[in-house]
Amino acid sequence: MIVLEFKLKGKPQQYRVIDNMIRTAQFIRNKALKYWMENQGVKLSDLYKQCAVIAKEFEWAGKLNSMARQASAERALIAIQRFFANCKAKKPGKKGFPQFKKFSRTVEYKTSGWKLSSDKRHLAFTDGFAAGSFKLVGSRDLHFYAPDEIKRVRVIRRADGYYAQFCINVERVEEALPTGKAIGIDLGLNHFLTDSTGTTVPNPRHLRKSEKGLRIAQRRVSSKKKGSANHRKAINRLARKHLKVSRQRKDFAIKTALCVVKSSDFIAYEDLQVRNMVKNPHLAKSISDAAWSQFSQWLQYLGKVYGKIVVAVAPQYTSQNCSACGNTVKKSLSVRTHACRCGTVLDRDHNAALNILAKALRQAGIDLNTAGHAGINGAIRSLETCNRGDEWQQ
């Protein structure tokens, strides 16, 4: 499944109709959730039937396409299933009991309720709301995909406009030449990442660089009268600045992950528990700004697309143990150099990256002393060869 996104270009009155569609989808989702709360053992088929009842009871709700109503009920069921899964797994802390939505920003259609023009550059909604036709603005081309391959169309409201996402049922597979390299990656705040060859990628710190502009925009919001047009405009300007930071962070994560995947056949990274790490009030902002989780997700996804092996290992003791002799060298977070009595002196993150790679190879069942590792696409010859200092280009 791949997702192609386009910006919707239409008239102001059409955007107001989309707002009504989003509010209706939110209403149906909340109604489905309430029905589950009042009835035990509710299944998806029961929620589908309840959607039909809601459409008859509320005339304006019936304007939304029937499959769009079902998609809203499915969202409620996903929240319910996530709650039960967390309870079954005995997840510590709050289990995420489903909550009613107040500020939804999306409405989702399945295979009906919308129609593409013959040139596939315009999208029209054909349900009772009659939002009309919108021009699709984007660089991707829908001509490569058959209409029956588009399984869902999701409309999203953002600070800078409205977007349509097409969920296409195709498998993305990219060809990449084997490189014969294996690397371990240590994620950090001083450098975004350090690999097992000693190569570092600087931390961009997108939020830190934009903080001054965000503070000014926030003060302007506070100075305006609540409920006024100027207040709404100030909120929108602030939201746009936050949206820009979010997009910068995502773009950096994708490009860095793509570079790592293309340059190596075997990638090992530490499976950080970011949710627990951000509880530290001194490092929470910097950790969130680094977006380690987003980078890890793209690393896993692109590894599957390019047919590379991506392994996540536990981060415990990767910084404390010596990568050469295995002895434990205790050091605080402020100590940035690893110095062992065996004579090994390395940067702390470089030492951790070597430990992460070694742990991942053991986890994958690969003998470090054996040449010709068939488990790494038949291209990795030995750990020494992998770590002799070949650098990948950012």
Results as ranks from 00 to 15, higher is better:
residue 73 A to G: 07
residue 33 L to M: 15
residue 81 Q to C: 06
residue 392 W to S: 10
residue 249 R to W: 09
residue 136 L to W: 02
residue 12 P to H: 06
residue 272 L to E: 03
residue 121 R to M: 09
residue 148 D to F: 04
residue 122 H to Q: 12
residue 227 G to Y: 04
residue 358 A to P: 00
residue 11 K to E: 08
residue 102 K to Y: 10
residue 52 A to M: 05
residue 373 H to Y: 10
residue 164 A to W: 08
residue 300 Q to G: 02
residue 15 Y to S: 10
residue 82 R to K: 12
residue 191 H to A: 12
residue 382 S to G: 01
residue 285 K to Y: 06
residue 252 F to K: 11
residue 389 G to P: 03
residue 360 A to T: 04
residue 23 R to T: 05
residue 335 V to I: 12
residue 209 K to Q: 14
residue 344 T to P: 02
residue 168 I to D: 01
residue 57 E to K: 15
residue 380 I to M: 12
residue 114 W to A: 04
residue 44 L to Q: 04
residue 143 H to L: 10
residue 5 E to P: 07
residue 99 Q to Y: 11
residue 230 N to L: 03
residue 371 A to D: 09
residue 158 R to C: 05
residue 327 N to H: 10
residue 221 V to D: 11
residue 171 E to Y: 00
residue 83 F to D: 04
residue 389 G to V: 00
residue 219 R to S: 03
residue 65 N to W: 06
residue 162 Y to G: 02
residue 335 V to L: 10
residue 230 N to K: 15
residue 77 L to Y: 09
residue 165 Q to C: 13
residue 300 Q to P: 07
residue 65 N to V: 08
residue 142 L to Y: 04
residue 355 N to E: 07
residue 21 M to R: 02
residue 227 G to V: 03
residue 381 R to G: 06
residue 383 L to V: 12
residue 64 L to V: 08
residue 324 A to E: 14
residue 219 R to I: 06
residue 76 A to T: 03
residue 158 R to W: 03
residue 97 F to A: 00
residue 221 V to H: 12
residue 76 A to Y: 02
residue 341 R to F: 14
residue 80 I to W: 09
residue 333 L to C: 09
residue 287 I to A: 07
residue 98 P to A: 05
residue 352 A to G: 08
residue 349 D to F: 07
residue 111 T to H: 11
residue 135 K to C: 09
residue 175 E to H: 14
residue 239 A to M: 07
residue 40 Q to L: 07
residue 386 C to P: 02
residue 338 H to Y: 01
residue 301 Y to H: 14
residue 213 G to Q: 09
residue 148 D to V: 02
residue 368 L to K: 11
residue 104 S to M: 06
residue 341 R to K: 15
residue 58 F to G: 02
residue 6 F to Q: 10
residue 298 W to T: 08
residue 195 D to W: 01
residue 156 I to R: 14
residue 90 K to L: 13
residue 87 C to W: 13
residue 230 N to Q: 14
residue 53 V to Q: 13
residue 157 R to I: 00
residue 225 K to F: 02
residue 199 T to A: 14
residue 297 Q to M: 06
residue 356 I to S: 02
residue 379 A to C: 11
residue 91 K to I: 11
residue 90 K to G: 11
residue 134 F to Y: 04
residue 283 L to S: 06
residue 41 G to V: 04
residue 26 Q to M: 12
residue 190 N to Y: 13
residue 354 L to F: 05
